[in-house]
Nucleic acid binder design. Structure first.
Lengths: 204, 204
DNA sequence: GAAAGCAGTTAATCCAGGTTAAGTGTAACT
DNA sequence: AGTTACACTTAACCTGGATTAACTGCTTTC
């Protein structure tokens, strides 16, 4: 594990290749193609990767770091739609697929190292290595499964319970997230989350 | 359009083939394989296709009709996660992919004609016709885009606005849905939706 | 064609969570 | 070192939507 991490520092593409090889084997030639297709990017904390209204150019794969994607409402409040840590993908899918203006913003919560690929780049990559359709299919299917579960949680549980589920499912993530971003993700105000967490005995 | 509909009555697989051919061409041989791989099913209104706790066996493709997928909370209330009409797919993805007990129920709201395929069936079909990975990838990616958008809506808008968005996006669907199912989908009680819709001037 | 259900309505009361505002602690820039 | 800025807390008050319950049609069923 430590060895893998330090590998990614020198060769960030290894992180992606590792992710893909969980699902399908890659030949050395294919690995070389992948390294060509993806560009590396380093972003600082608070740096913005995508602004609402722009046309999404890239899909992002997080090698190291932490991103958030959020929508801004009419009153200027943020609502976190998704986070992405090491090994996760992030993109405004609607804007990416249809090349329409994004409804979301993407921002780095921590300094992050990313791999990026443009939508045309991804499409031609899929032509060159059709096997990657399997990888991306499974990726989307798993994400879909997670979204369905999260919808059930949001529709049927109280804020307290939603918080509990989040801690259960992503214990490492919450430790890296400022409280206000957790609040925004589970759909309450930072004030209410604070009150909730400091309730006597944290009862109920 | 009318011609297509009547075709589906006699040959329900045409509906699926039509859906796939929007994305990739199929040879006559492949079409024959598809017809073998999918089984037809007819279900009556209120018939249950999947019960919470069961292991999901099938993915469902709706040829004609209307399904809903819902979670039941600790107090016995339903929460609609998704609907599916003609040409849409439906499944509890987590249960299907991991072969774990389902957290959702699937039920017919109208008499429906379906195509079903088991998970092993789908996997061997993908081996036989690898091109279908493209179809299923795009299917999941589009569904993902829709879920992201819906999350933004649910986190940032009021019930009134959520209702408005639903009408905007799926005007045909709401006409076929009993009000209580709309309420459950947008995350309010039937009582509140009724009050909301009958507010003087439907103001605000 | 009575009876039983079920979908929708109305209204009174209640509460989870929002809003506003002021305060504290700590990290970050000069 | 001092100031700014932001994360978090606390508390008073407010409100969108829940809960309960009673009532009004419609269907469905026998």
């Amino acid at each position: 594990m430590v060895i893998l991490l330090s590998l990614f520092l020198i060769m960030p593409h290894q992180s992606l290749i590792h992710s893909i090889e969980q699902i399908l084997p890659l030949t050395p030639g294919q690995k070389a193609i992948l390294k060509e297709a993806f560009h590396t990017a380093e972003v600082k904390k608070k740096e913005v990767l995508l602004k609402e209204g722009e046309i999404t150019k890239y899909s992002y794969f997080v090698v190291e770091g932490l991103l958030r994607m959020y929508a801004t409402d009419d009153n200027g409040f943020d609502h976190n739609i998704q986070f992405a840590i090491n090994g996760w993908w992030m993109s405004d899918m609607l804007s990416l697929l249809n090349q329409t203006p994004a409804s979301f913003n993407i921002e780095a919560i921590e300094d992050s190292r990313l791999l990026t690929i443009s939508q045309p780049g991804k499409e031609s990559l899929l032509q060159t290595i059709p096997g990657l359709n399997i990888y991306f299919r499974q990726l989307s299917e798993n994400a879909l499964a997670a979204y369905q579960q999260r919808f059930a949680i949001n529709l049927s549980l109280t804020a307290q319970e939603r918080y509990g589920k989040l801690c259960e499912r992503y214990p490492l993530l919450i430790q890296r997230l400022p409280q206000k971003h957790i609040a925004s993700y589970i759909g309450v105000t930072p004030e209410f989350l604070s009150k909730m967490l400091n309730r006597p005995f944290n009862s109920k």
